[in-house]
Nucleic acid binder design. Structure first.
Length: 290
DNA sequence: GACATTTGACCATT
DNA sequence: AATGGTCAAATGTC
């Protein structure tokens, strides 16, 4: 069963890459590669490489699914083995520290672009504040397994550590084309985290007015697996160094980027400010270029 | 009534 | 055994 899901996920990834390619350059929708030297050609080239990776993975899986176990490639054998294992899945995990300018502005936490549903809360040993557990609202509708944990900092109650686990496989609504219901969800759904008593909540600030102190880090990845991000991603480097980039001149410029493991994560190993969550999310979404 | 949140219980991991 | 993570029934909100 999980094997079928793997095929479905790969097919979905391939289709989404096709859509992204068409979106970036509709005139190339029927060709397999680009010979253009336009600024977007690097992106098209990288998307083509992603598509080839999907095709290769699907062909490997298709070639190994017909025979007995002795013919199954190791990766499929591993997948099948996990069917009977009750061990908790080791999922990609990374965390952010989000600073709230004041307790009264908690309601104005920047939306991370996804719809979350709270499924639990638990007091954590040694922590003054409970930890909230959230999963993607599309978990059942689209099988999205992304979750996040929200923990208020003991030392600085205005800081929240948000730990994301797993990658979204749902069709994330675009910011500019979000359905009405998604644009204005109930506040508890838009910013679901441990909230102070309601009487402490005041007028929420406009999202663009909220200053952020945000760090991104990974804490379950062996340092030996880290590799410099920029040398493997000239496109990302050019985006950051570009004169039009919102990161130009900010603390982010010149920072060290890391691609971790198999390219699952992007890490910015220090704090920075004056960058909106949307900007960071947009750039971190380039993780596939690792 | 539909959907989201709360909360105690259960389970996996260490 | 202690702890963290998830489930699911109860409850709340719109």
């Amino acid at each position: 069963m999980e094997f079928v899901n793997l095929i479905q996920e790969l097919n979905q990834g391939r289709n989404l890459a096709h859509q992204l390619r068409d979106h970036l350059h509709p005139s190339l929708s029927s060709s397999s590669s680009s010979s253009s030297s336009s600024p977007s050609s690097n992106g098209i080239l990288l998307i083509d490489q992603i598509l080839r990776s999907y095709e290769n993975a699907l062909s490997v899986l298709a070639g190994g699914s017909g025979g007995g176990d002795e013919e199954i490639p190791p990766i499929i054998a591993a997948v099948k083995h996990r069917d009977v294992s009750k061990k908790r899945k080791v999922m990609a995990k990374w965390s952010e520290l989000v600073k709230i300018p004041s307790v009264s502005a908690i309601g104005a936490l920047p939306d991370d672009g996804f719809s979350w549903r709270k499924y639990g809360q638990k007091d954590i040993l040694g922590s003054k504040f409970p930890r909230g557990y959230f999963r993607c609202s599309h978990r059942f509708a689209q099988g999205c397994s992304a979750t996040k944990l929200v923990q208020r900092s003991d030392n600085d109650p205005s800081m929240y550590e948000i730990t994301y686990r797993g990658k979204h496989t749902c069709n994330k609504p675009l910011h500019s084309n979000t359905p009405k219901q998604e644009q204005n969800p109930p506040q508890s759904q838009q910013h679901p985290m441990p909230m102070p008593p309601k009487q402490e909540q005041e007028e929420p600030l406009q999202q663009q007015d909220v200053p952020l102190c945000l760090t991104v880090s990974s804490d379950n990845v062996d340092d030996s697996l880290r590799r410099p991000f920029c040398p493997l991603s000239p496109l990302f480097r050019s985006e950051v160094e570009d004169a039009q980039s919102p990161f130009r001149g900010s603390e982010l410029e010149g920072l060290e980027f890391w691609c971790i493991g198999d390219g699952d994560l992007v890490s910015v190993p220090s704090s920075f400010t004056n960058i909106s969550m949307g900007d960071l999310e947009e750039y971190c979404s380039l993780e596939s270029f690792c």
